[in-house]
Amino acid sequence: MSPTSTSRARSKELLAVEVLLPENHEIKNLRSIKPFVSSLFPTVKVEMRPSIGEQVEDEQMEAVASSLASARVKDPTRSEQDFEPMYGELDYERRVLEGEARAGGILYDGRILEDIFSKILRPKVDRASIVLTDRLVSTFSRDDLRHHLRTIVCGFPSIVSLPGIVEAPAKPREYYLIKQKLELQGAGELRIEQLKSSFKGRFLDYDDARTIEVVKGLVFQAVMFHLTLEPFCEKRGCRLFNAHWQEDLIRSQITSAKLCKDHTRQLKALSSCPSIAW
C-alpha cells in the first residue's frame, strides 16, 4: 500500500519505527536512539537495522548504483540535473553500497534519494522508516531557486543526513566573514582550525560528541512527520524546531532539548496511542 494514497488508514496506529544505520559505521552511540524513541513511544517497536547498502539484493546492485550516481547534484542552481553518470561515479556508488568505500562529500538530491530508498525499503503505513546516512543531502528551494543542504528530508522514508548536521545549518555570520577573509589571504587548515576554536560551542563540527543528541531530535521529527505530516514547530526552544542556524540547532536539540507546551501535550496523547493522522 502506498503511504500517500490511504485515506482509509485514518484509524491506523504506528506499530514500528525502523532506523537504518549510516554507511560508514563510525558513530558508536547511535544505538542509543532505540531507547530514546522507545521512551517517547512505549507501544511502538523500534528496530535498528544495517545500512541501506545491506538491504540491496545482489541482482539490484547495478541498478541502485546507477540511480544513486544519477541522484547527484552537480549544479546547485538547477532543480533538475541533466547528466550521464561517469564510469567512476557508478563504480564509487557500487563500492559504497558494498561497504568498500566511504560515503560522504557528494551532494545528492534528497527527493530522488527518497525514491530510491523507498523502492528498496517498501515503507508501510504502520511502520516509520528513517534512513540515517553519511551522504550530503539537499533539496531545491523554490524561494531562491537553488539547492540547500539539509539535516533532514521528511518523507517515506525520511532521511537524516549526518554530515548535514555540520554542513547544513548556517554558522554565525562573523565566522563566514572571517573565514572568507582568511581564504582570500590563502590561509590554510591550521588558521581555519584556530578560527573554529575561537567560535567553540557556537556550531557543531565533525566528531562532536553532542551530535548524537541532534540525531535523536531529528529521528523524533521524522517519527512526528510519519504520524502527523507536520514534523516542525515554530518555537525556537522546541525539539521540533527546524533549525537553519547552528546556534538554533544547538539550543533546540542540546541546551534546551525540550518540547514546547503544545507539543508536550501532543506527545502525551501520541505516547499512549500513536495514531496516524492522515
Binding site: K74, D75, F83, G88, G105, L136, Y206
Partner: peptide, 27 residues
C-alpha cells in the same frame, strides 16, 4: 569524449574522503 561538470559546486567543510574515493579511472 568526456563531460566535466561546470563550476558552482557548493562549499563544504569536508569532502576529502570523496576525493580519495573517486581517485581512479575516469576514461
Amino acid at each position: 569524449l568526456i563531460k566535466v561538470p561546470g563550476f558552482g559546486a557548493m562549499w563544504v567543510e569536508k569532502s576529502e574522503d570523496a576525493v580519495v574515493e573517486h581517485t581512479g579511472f575516469c576514461h
